[in-house]
Design a protein around this nucleic acid. Structure first.
Length: 376
DNA sequence: GCGGATCAC
DNA sequence: TATGGTGATCCGC
């Protein structure tokens, strides 16, 4: 195993405690380039410190640190013969996965730019050019690019956002509005792929192989035309990524955001070059925890390193997890169009302040059950 | 089979 | 004052 990365020591930790408190919204995102990350991080920490939420985050982070320590120990205990065995397992799996590579489809991922915020600005043009967020004091759904300059981000609580940007305008969420504009964009998507896959109100995957062939246009030309059409129909901008599979297309749509696009050519060399230096956190399905584990245990920070450490991954993870990690290292992803998609669960939940009042808890349960039964 | 954890939007 | 809601998947027990 590689030497452990420089871990924040106890003394550095107490000198700059905010550096160890990370959240999903203290991560880099489009429009956050000129942001003073240190200052944002410190403000988030100061506003969070001492709260129940903060305590729970600390508890979870301690748990993850322990998990990393345990996995490191398991790694260290592997014998030379274990290591060569798992290296063979990995090499074989890599060959099998490589054999499934399909470069025949062209996938496009569309992602609307700051969707909820952009819709609200269409509805109320006086918001244009001013820092604005959709949501409330508890939670922000989206921030426009003016607000992002202050470090304000989706998933950040509103009271912290206001501290970062006192001028911030709050607009309450209005899903009816977003659904209306989402439907408009989907009418456009349908013209390029009648079987397009909606991933959310503001994201979709399109297999544009046929439309490219039939109209004898490049994927980049189709992407330009689709984005122009979406803008004409809705007044909203979007970004697009083109790649031979959905996993890569999703990464690509983020590269020239906002109002841009990126095409990854459908050949193995281009894919491997693209993936080689790509940070694993860019991959859908690899979140904050998995990033920490892969980095802390194996020293894996880029997709290429998934292949280099393949033996250890096969030794320590389940078959399905190891397969996923190796696939990422190869730049493989789904290329099929599932014909039917079933919903597998239905649920509802509400957050409320802590209580030991059982009567109140039963009442909450009754309310939730009632609402859920109506949904069903 | 179930509950908790992780992840995405 | 104050850190969401819905759906999916995986893992360990």
């Amino acid at each position: 195993m590689e030497k452990a990365e420089a871990e924040p020591s106890a003394s550095a930790d107490s000198a700059r405690p905010w550096q160890s408190y990370t959240t999903v919204y203290t991560n880099a995102k489009a429009g956050m380039d000129g942001v003073d990350k240190e200052k944002v991080q410190r403000t988030v920490y100061e506003m969070s410190k001492g709260s129940k939420y903060f305590e729970n985050e600390e508890r979870k982070e301690a748990f993850i640190r322990q998990k990393i320590d345990n996995m490191r120990a398991r790694c260290a205990k592997l014998s030379a013969s274990d290591i060569s065995h798992y290296q063979m397992v990995a090499d074989k799996r890599i060959l099998e996965l490589e054999a499934t590579r399909d470069l025949s489809r062209i996938w496009l991922h569309v992602d609307m730019d700051a969707f909820y915020a952009a819709v609200e600005t269409l509805d109320n043009p006086s918001l244009r050019g001013r820092p604005m967020a959709v949501g409330g004091m508890s939670m922000i759904s989206t921030a426009n690019y003016e607000a992002r300059k202050f470090g304000v981000r989706a998933a950040m609580p509103g009271f912290i956002a206001r501290k970062l940007c006192p001028e911030l305008i709050f607009v309450p969420t209005d899903f009816k509005k977003y659904t209306y504009y989402s439907d408009l964009t989907r009418k456009v998507f349908q013209k390029y792929d009648p079987n397009f896959m909606a991933a959310s109100l503001d994201e979709a995957y399109l297999d544009i192989t046929e439309v490219c062939n039939e109209r004898d246009l490049t994927s980049g030309e189709i992407a330009e035309e689709l984005r122009t059409s979406v803008h004409e129909v809705t007044g909203l901008t979007c970004s697009a990524g083109v790649a031979p599979n959905r996993l890569l297309a999703k990464v690509c749509s983020d590269i020239n955001k906002p109002n841009g696009q990126f095409v990854l050519p459908s050949n193995r060399m281009a894919v491997m070059t693209f993936i080689s230096s790509l940070p694993i956190r860019k991959i859908g399905g690899i979140g904050k925890v998995t990033e920490h584990i892969l980095s802390g245990v194996f020293g894996i920070n880029t997709c290429e390193e998934m292949l280099q450490k393949g033996g250890f991954l096969c030794a320590l993870f389940s078959r399905s997890s190891a397969d996923f990690f190796l696939s990422v290292g190869l730049g493989l992803g789904k290329t099929d169009t599932p014909q039917v998609r079933f919903r597998k669960s239905i649920s509802n939940e509400r957050t409320f302040s802590a209580t030991d009042d059982t009567a109140l808890l039963y009442q909450k349960l009754a309310e939730l059950s009632e609402m859920l039964s109506i949904d069903m």
